[in-house]
Amino acid sequence: MNDVGRTAFAASVLPHLDAAYNLARWLVRDGHDAQDVVQDALVRALRHFDGFRGGDARPWLLAIVRNAAWAWLGARRPGDVDVPDDELDAALADGAPPGDPETLAIRRAERLEIDAAIAALPIAFREAVVLRELEEMSYRDIARITGVPIGTVMSRLSRGRHLLAAALRPTASRSPA
């Protein structure tokens, strides 16, 4: 790619560098590793920039970052990405039952607690929550980025939120999971 192409690439993609790093950081859960992932992703993005037909570069870039993060984890920490569905279901079943209004308790939760609760989510739920709550992507964009149907995005997001709520409830009803 020539300098003109690289300049166009920089103009489209670099405004989203923080979002790219944030997603990678939440997926691999390490700052240094996240930098490697983002660099990998940008090399891939640069190579495939010809295939980007304009429009919103953010979901396009985040899809590449997401795939780079999963590939990185698959190669180095396969346990992080190899979570069978029934294990996810079990994680959910361990949560506290819904219905108790714990509004105030949750509102008072500290930044560290919330970060820890998000970091503890299984990766499929974590990426849905991060893309929705921190990057404010639509269901449709999340479906594109994570490569699953919209219905799956909805159930993952819902389960992720359910697990977060269970983790952030006061200790009395907090589950060991």
Binding site: Y21, N22, R111, D115, E133, L168
Partner: peptide, 19 residues
């Protein structure tokens, strides 16, 4: 409860800036 959770997450969760 869902809304409170979301507000707490959006207000508190760390958004990591590219170093």
């Amino acid at each position: 409860e869902r809304r409170a959770l979301r507000e707490a997450v959006r207000a508190q969760a760390t958004r990591h800036a590219a170093p």
